[in-house]
Design a protein around this nucleic acid. Structure first.
Lengths: 212, 212
DNA sequence: CCGGATCCTCGGTGATACTG
DNA sequence: CAGTATCACCGAGGATCCGG
């Protein structure tokens, strides 16, 4: 965050100094899903000026949150989180959970991105409800695909199609209402807002596992 | 956050739009400790321009995070968090925990505030280590007093002196090193960085209960 | 095409002074 | 005490350009 300081000897203030600048935590959000090239970050963050992205990456590199890596045998640059950066996951998850509750209908022009979806699923995952559960879900939102594999209660998220999903869910922004309990699985299906391939009881399990 | 929008239908992005602006989460941090008057917020956030504080409070009031309340029979205004605002506590705690790990020695001119201290204790509290514990601590840092009462494992923080503290700890910025385990209780005492009134084994318990 | 760098504009922040 | 008013400035936003 450069010179923008709060002048307090406080862990929270220090955190905001390091990743509190505009766009910084959005970059972290996307890097938490997977390492990315500069161009990929731009695509996932529509509207971010390239110079701002450059500045944030440099600042967070200096802060030890992000590191530049050169892909072997191809001068390509990849940005990834350091261990320090990865440790932001609980904070990002909590903030995402808080914001998801306040999320009304999509505003004009708002888009969804794969990494936003993954973050949403991480934020809404209910470990207690997942205790002992094993299931593989595949979400289709627009042309995006996100996979959620729960193995004996442990969640693994991905952005590549599964070969053996137990349930494939095709859905739009109604996902938010479904996870918030404002849209029942039955109504979701009957209204056509949601389409599934697989057993519909798995959809009911899904809304138990992921709740806003 | 006004017009500063991220253009994504995403709970995390929405959270940053509501409380991601500069100073906003610092205000939330302090209001999480207790409702406050305008002037109290200014004192707790040295360096914040009054117009920025006004703007943030208005924005967060519009967002339903903060509410203005008029004290009975005295035109005084008090700002307090709504239920929505209070729900930010886990996020603030997690961010504070992350930042506390990165907190080196105090920089030139950095100050500590009561609310920062309370936030730090909340962030570092270890519920597991506190299981079944009952103890009352009183921290003195400079001229500030913070109380931490653990009752059967449950933590209650305050900013008023206790009448019956089991242990009174007088300490400075070394608190950070003590909680980080980089300064042992013994060395802290022998070096004079920490002074206590009460049983010194309670100090060892303290660093078990609160850890960075 | 990727990974930026450069330039310019505009609006928010920061600092200070002022008012009900 | 609780803000409002004013203004300088810097960083965000947006477009374009450049080297590999």
């Amino acid at each position: 965050m450069g010179k923008r300081v709060y002048g307090q000897y406080c862990g929270f203030a220090r955190a905001l100094e390091l990743v509190g600048e505009r766009w910084a935590l959005m970059v972290v959000r996307d890097l938490l899903v997977s390492p990315k090239r500069f161009r990929e970050l731009q695509r996932g963050l529509p509207g971010i000026p390239s110079n701002v992205l450059t500045t944030r990456l440099k600042e967070m590199e200096t802060a030890g949150v992000v590191e530049r890596r050169l892909l072997p045998r191809s001068n390509h640059v990849v940005y990834q989180l350091t261990a320090t950066g990865t440790a932001l996951e609980p904070a990002v998850t909590e903030l995402g959970r808080w914001g998801a509750k306040l999320l009304g209908p999509p505003r004009q022009g708002e888009v969804m991105t794969v990494d936003a979806l993954v973050t949403a699923l991480r934020s809404t995952f209910q470990p207690k409800a997942a205790k002992g559960v094993t299931a593989a879900y595949e979400l289709h939102v627009g042309n995006m695909v996100v996979s959620a594999c729960i193995t004996r209660g442990r969640l693994a998220l991905g952005t590549t199609p599964l070969s053996d999903a137990d349930l494939t869910i095709e859905i739009g922004p109604a996902l938010r209402d479904l996870l918030a309990g404002e849209l029942s699985p039955r109504k979701a299906l009957s209204s056509g807002l949601v389409q599934i391939q697989g057993n519909r009881t798995l959809l009911e399990q899904f809304v138990e596992l992921f709740r806003i």
